[in-house]
């Protein structure tokens, strides 16, 4: 009974998750055929060739954590306000307004920023007030704005959840014992919200490591991530074994980040579940 119920999902996981991973590993240790195909081999040459795409790795490993931290800096005050300061009657609506954009098309939302940062958007406004020749699109800054825009909701949610569960009596006790609001924040509120902070930061960082659309549309080929290198290698320059080696490396990076994040999260008591919807 149990076996019959889980069989379709098990088949799916085997054929569309496990098998593809094995195939990718096989390709990553293989050689490239002259026309871009695959030659069976067992070689590390694809992995030794990784420095050829060092820029993509460098950009990703720099801008993903920086983007996540940027999200965290903006998300924390918002989550704090929603959980502890906002009128409880409006809370549900305010939270919904944060979550809803996350589930609408990232393509469309990023595209909106092409508009705003493009030469006829903000730069032309700045030119009108006497600040000519400011290029915004296709810069690291544009990519960071896109990241903040795309991933802010995902950062706010877990922090909000951990702040909302916080026992208010602890804050009163802290105040009664003579702590100033700032001391209460750093001594009580912030430590108790660390599980949410960790979950949000880890989630956003991991998703950013595999990001493609934001650097593609707002970085315009100048600021590119590993995802962009992968699309190039698979759909344009057709070097599947090398692309597979990069994809395998990306998965390893994700696993490392996840493990480190979980190690840190375990040090803070509390839940690691994220309420995304």
């Amino acid at each position: 009974m149990t076996a019959a119920f889980v069989a379709p999902a098990a088949l799916w996981l085997a054929v569309f998750l496990v098998l593809p991973f094995i195939a990718m590993l096989v390709f990553a240790f293989g050689r490239r055929a002259p026309e871009g195909g695959y030659l069976p081999a067992f070689t590390f040459e694809q992995f030794l060739n990784l420095p050829a795409r060092a820029t993509a790795f460098g950009n990703t490993l720099l801008l993903a954590p920086v983007g996540a931290l940027l999200c965290l800096l903006v998300a924390y005050p918002v989550a704090y306000y929603l959980a502890l300061r906002a009128d409880p009657r409006h809370r549900l609506v305010l939270i919904s307004l944060i979550v809803v954009p996350f589930w609408t098309s990232l393509l469309v939302r990023t595209y909106a920023w092409m508009y705003i940062l493009g030469s006829r958007g903000l730069p032309s406004l700045l030119e009108a007030v006497g600040l000519p020749d400011i290029r915004m699109l296709n810069t690291p800054g544009a990519v960071l704005v896109g990241i903040l825009y795309g991933y802010l909701p995902l950062m706010i949610m877990p922090i909000y959840v951990s702040l909302e569960k916080l026992d208010r009596r602890l804050l009163e006790a802290s105040a009664d014992l003579g702590a100033r609001p700032v001391a209460t924040f750093f001594g009580v509120t912030l430590p108790l919200s660390m599980p949410g902070v960790m979950t949000g930061t880890a989630l956003v960082t991991i998703l950013l490591l595999g990001e493609y659309l934001i650097p593609q549309l707002l970085g315009g080929g100048k600021v590119f991530f590993i995802g962009n290198a992968l699309v190039d290698l698979f759909l344009q320059s057709r070097n599947w074994p090398f692309g597979s080696a990069i994809a395998v490396t990306l998965v390893l990076v994700v696993v490392v980040v996840l493990t480190v994040a979980m190690r840190i999260a375990w040090r803070f008591a509390g839940t690691r579940r994220v309420d995304l919807v």
Partner: peptide
């Protein structure tokens, strides 16, 4: 794993397989 692995990797791995 199906949720955490980046979409770009899922796409590539499925294509290759």
């Amino acid at each position: 794993a199906a949720i955490v692995v980046p979409g770009v990797v899922i796409g590539i791995a499925t294509l290759v397989a």
